[in-house]
Design a protein around this nucleic acid. Structure first.
Lengths: 105, 105
DNA sequence: TTGACATATCAATAATTATTGATATGTTTG
DNA sequence: CAAACATATCAATAATTATTGATATGTCAA
């Protein structure tokens, strides 16, 4: 497993996005911060599940949160989104990319 | 689970990218197409494993392949990358995004 | 045409991730 | 202070994904 760059971080980032519930959360946060109680309708099930997915997103750096009284507010992290952007850019073909391989010669 | 758009497709796309081995494959393909035999050094293990990960990427539409004699060539799919781009754009805050929520009022 | 090679697929198992239900923690309100 | 609320965490289980080893398929070269 020879590897130039570190791929663990981007893999973790993509993993956090690889779930419909979490994408639905993000979609909801696009318009600004929301408290958890304002996200529960995304789910038809357990509250702990929502909490779990929020944690996954938070640990991946995609969302940030703050607590205010008994409410917790979440919002999209500009830094996290920027990191995502970088991760995606890193997948683009290089300028010198050739369609045909000089492979197995 | 109320949902406006379909999140299954982007979730699947991100899932395909959520693995270090697969990112390493993509990294290798950035410079142009490669045959499988030219990717085996990314792994220290079973060939079937590489084949499996290539399949995941292929089924997600991120890479394309063709067969030539006994070799199989893989390359980054422009369409797949474009789709990824769209998926990422869809996560950006909307213009009207407010930092503070008018929530739980 | 036989044998070595390149790759894919499959079944079994292992590893990881998600869901559930229960409980804990802190907060507000009466 | 007690009860109701908002949220997080934890342990058990379920579900999904990945890895392995074996085998299959097609191709090329002697």
């Amino acid at each position: 497993m020879t590897r130039t760059r570190d791929l663990l971080a981007p893999a973790a980032l993509f993993h956090a996005l690889s779930d419909e519930t979490r994408l639905a959360i993000i979609e909801r946060l696009r318009s600004g911060e929301r408290c958890v109680c304002d996200l529960t309708d995304l789910l038809d099930s357990a509250q702990s599940r929502l909490s779990f997915h929020l944690k996954v997103l938070r640990e991946a750096g995609i969302i940030d949160c703050r607590r205010e009284g008994r409410w917790a507010y979440y919002w999209l992290s500009p830094d996290g989104l920027a990191e995502l952007d970088d991760a995606v850019k890193a997948l683009q073909p290089s300028k010198a990319a050739t369609r045909r391989a000089a492979c197995c010669s």
